[in-house]
């Protein structure tokens, strides 16, 4: 969704359209999260009239899909892979291995026990 895209490139990792899209989704989610929470608060607040709750429900359902957390997907920041990402490092397994071997990940080393 181009209306959320920054005018200038604002990420420093591996760039492809899917990584960019995910980045935008994360930003939009962070921006609109207070609003979503507020609407949810109004919906669950039983002291408010029924009509107000209904209005809040309507508004919540009309919000853009990018404001949902379920849209966010972990992607490899080194290669853009979308599956099998190690969430501790936000990298695919092979990129993790390469970076760990070259000592780019703090504290991670080859194990032997």
């Amino acid at each position: 969704m181009s209306q959320f895209r920054a005018k200038r490139l604002d990420i420093g990792c591996f760039v492809n359209v899917r990584n960019l899209r995910d980045h935008n989704k994360r930003k939009v989610f962070a921006q609109f999260e207070p609003e979503r929470q507020a609407l949810r608060y109004i919906i669950h607040n039983t002291t408010l009239p029924q009509r107000v709750c209904a209005q809040a429900q309507l508004q919540l359902s009309q919000m853009h899909c990018y404001t949902r957390f379920t849209q966010v997907k972990n992607r490899c920041i080194m290669g853009g892979k979308g599956r099998g990402i190690m969430s501790d490092f936000r990298m695919g397994r092979f990129q993790f291995r390469l970076n760990a071997l070259s000592g780019n990940i703090p504290g991670v080393r080859k194990a032997s026990w």
Binding site: P34, E35, Q37, A38, L39, Y41, I42, P49, R51, V52, A54, Q55, A56, Q59
Partner: peptide, 15 residues
């Protein structure tokens, strides 16, 4: 944000 929302026209109408 809740305060802001409740001051919107639509919510005022609902009230």
């Amino acid at each position: 944000k809740v305060e802001e929302l409740l001051n919107q026209d639509q919510f005022k109408k609902a009230f």
